[in-house]
Amino acid sequence: MVLLVRMTEKLTTAALCQLELIAEHEVDAAVDAYMADPLAPTFVFREGYRLNLAKAVRRHPGADDVVSRGKVGPALVRPFVRAAILQARPDRG
């Protein structure tokens, strides 16, 4: 299957995973980085894609809501952070 994408269009992390430009273990590492430090610096994926994890979580309505509650355990927060990262659009370079 051939996927044609405009060069100016930024793909989601999930789409980059499907294209094998970002590996699942890298997404796991990004989630781990956010869970360890919500203010962590920009996360850099293997192929040079960069993602501000805090911004990705803030822009995701569900993740932002769960994280903002404060008294929610990591088992509930983690899937929302993962969803936010997968739906975010990393920059290249």
Rank of each mutant, 00 (worst) to 15 (best):
1 M>I: 09
2 V>Y: 13
2 V>E: 15
4 L>E: 12
4 L>V: 13
5 V>N: 13
5 V>G: 01
5 V>W: 06
6 R>A: 13
6 R>V: 00
7 M>F: 01
7 M>P: 00
8 T>I: 05
9 E>H: 07
10 K>H: 05
11 L>W: 04
11 L>Q: 10
13 T>Y: 01
13 T>E: 06
13 T>Q: 08
14 A>Y: 11
14 A>L: 14
14 A>H: 11
15 A>Y: 00
15 A>Q: 15
16 L>V: 11
16 L>I: 09
16 L>G: 10
17 C>R: 14
17 C>G: 08
17 C>N: 08
18 Q>L: 07
19 L>P: 03
20 E>T: 06
22 I>H: 03
22 I>M: 04
22 I>R: 02
23 A>I: 04
23 A>S: 15
24 E>N: 13
26 E>V: 08
27 V>K: 06
27 V>I: 14
28 D>V: 13
28 D>T: 12
30 A>L: 02
30 A>I: 04
30 A>G: 05
30 A>H: 05
30 A>V: 03
30 A>D: 03
31 V>M: 13
31 V>H: 12
31 V>I: 15
32 D>H: 12
32 D>L: 12
32 D>N: 14
34 Y>K: 07
34 Y>E: 07
36 A>W: 02
36 A>N: 12
36 A>F: 04
38 P>S: 07
39 L>W: 05
41 P>D: 14
41 P>T: 11
41 P>C: 03
41 P>F: 00
41 P>E: 14
41 P>I: 00
42 T>A: 02
43 F>A: 02
43 F>Q: 01
43 F>T: 03
44 V>N: 01
45 F>R: 07
45 F>K: 09
46 R>T: 03
46 R>I: 02
46 R>N: 06
46 R>G: 02
48 G>L: 03
49 Y>S: 03
50 R>D: 00
50 R>V: 05
50 R>M: 08
50 R>Y: 00
52 N>S: 07
52 N>F: 01
53 L>V: 09
53 L>C: 09
53 L>M: 08
55 K>L: 14
56 A>T: 06
57 V>Q: 02
57 V>N: 01
58 R>D: 13
58 R>T: 07
59 R>Q: 15
59 R>A: 14
59 R>N: 15
60 H>G: 03
60 H>V: 09
60 H>L: 08
61 P>R: 03
62 G>A: 15
62 G>Y: 10
63 A>E: 10
63 A>I: 10
64 D>F: 11
65 D>C: 06
65 D>T: 11
66 V>N: 00
66 V>H: 00
67 V>N: 00
68 S>C: 01
68 S>K: 10
68 S>Y: 00
69 R>F: 08
69 R>V: 04
70 G>R: 01
71 K>T: 13
71 K>E: 12
72 V>F: 05
72 V>R: 03
73 G>C: 14
74 P>Q: 09
75 A>E: 13
75 A>M: 10
76 L>I: 14
77 V>E: 04
77 V>S: 05
78 R>H: 05
78 R>A: 12
80 F>G: 12
80 F>V: 10
82 R>L: 12
82 R>Q: 15
83 A>R: 10
83 A>G: 07
85 I>T: 11
85 I>H: 09
86 L>P: 07
86 L>S: 07
86 L>D: 06
87 Q>M: 14
88 A>R: 00
88 A>Q: 02
88 A>K: 01
88 A>I: 05
89 R>Y: 04
89 R>L: 06
90 P>F: 07
91 D>T: 05
91 D>A: 07
92 R>W: 09
92 R>G: 00
92 R>K: 12
93 G>H: 10
93 G>P: 05
